[in-house]
Write a protein that binds this DNA or RNA. Structure first.
Lengths: 159, 159
DNA sequence: GTATCTGCAAAACATTTGCAATTCT
DNA sequence: AGAATTGCAAATGTTTTGCAGATAC
């Protein structure tokens, strides 16, 4: 299976569990029960969840699951470069299975993370630098919170 | 003292301690001993230090200083919007007294944070959003590390 | 003299690690 | 059996907090 970079996300979304298994194996990740579950969750729900949100999600279904497993799995995915870490919040990391070059917007009203397209970035001063990774994070209010006039008072995260 | 946004940084750099005192007072921050010290350090050394680096720096000079004071002071500065927090590393926050719109580049070889100018950013998909904050973080190798062929193996931070 | 500021130690929180138990091939 | 995966509890590292003592206006 050869996939062009831009299309990877959409293609993965259409995959069934069996296909995910193949995908992980191909990336030299043994497709264990939790790895499949967690990766599937990341590509299906595109909510950029935190490790703890993933833990809570599966805790209901599988009460024996441990946080260490979530972290181990996510770190494995990061090292194999099939997910990216989003450090838009200083408190906890979020995870995104979409690898394409895009930005993240955090709504300070509801806390939701939105993806957006980056058309162009012009910078100056790094002419002799080797740039390997790029992160663009924006914060503000999403249209729903603007309408509903939900404003965050003093806290750190929306909820 | 009225300062145009773009020039603020340069002007602050030329200030002497007495002027800093005025500046803090004007921002409704009582210019205590440590607040002056820490703010002066941030604008003089433009190294984007972590809270702990600031702590270590002053520990030599004033051994009685405590980490809580550093954090209290930095959080006060953040709430009064005279410094910005740089969350380019997931491990610990860095602090920058330059408030102008600019990006941060982290060298994966030596760990140094470089500022750079942002000329233009074109995005799509946030037409109805209210954007309040913008952060652009890049990672890679700085020219010195490229020359010296210092490469980071597995660790998280350069040193 | 009353507010604020500072230092200390403990707490809180996200994440990592060591190790034993389990699972997979 | 042997290797990899998982769960638990403890450890780690950063940041926050409660409170007592010091300092400033």
């Amino acid at each position: 299976m050869r996939i062009k970079k831009g299309e990877r996300t959409q293609i993965i979304e259409k995959m069934k569990m069996e296909e995910l298994k193949e995908f992980l194996a191909q990336k030299k990740i043994r497709p264990s029960f939790y790895r499949l579950k967690i990766y599937h969750f990341l590509i299906k729900e595109r909510t950029h969840p935190t490790a703890d949100e993933i833990f809570i999600h599966f805790k209901k279904e599988i009460p024996s699951i441990s946080r260490a497993t979530i972290y181990n799995t996510l770190n494995l995915f990061l090292s194999k470069k099939i997910v990216q870490q989003i450090n838009i919040e200083k408190t906890e990391a979020r995870y995104d299975a979409s690898l394409s070059w895009h930005g993240h917007f955090k709504c300070l009203g509801c806390g939701k993370i939105y993806d957006f397209q980056i058309k162009e970035i012009k910078i100056q001063g790094l002419e002799d630098f080797d740039i390997q990774e790029k992160y663009l994070f924006l914060e503000g209010k999403c249209p729903y919170c603007l309408k509903r006039k939900i404003f965050l008072k003093g806290g750190k995260n929306g909820a």
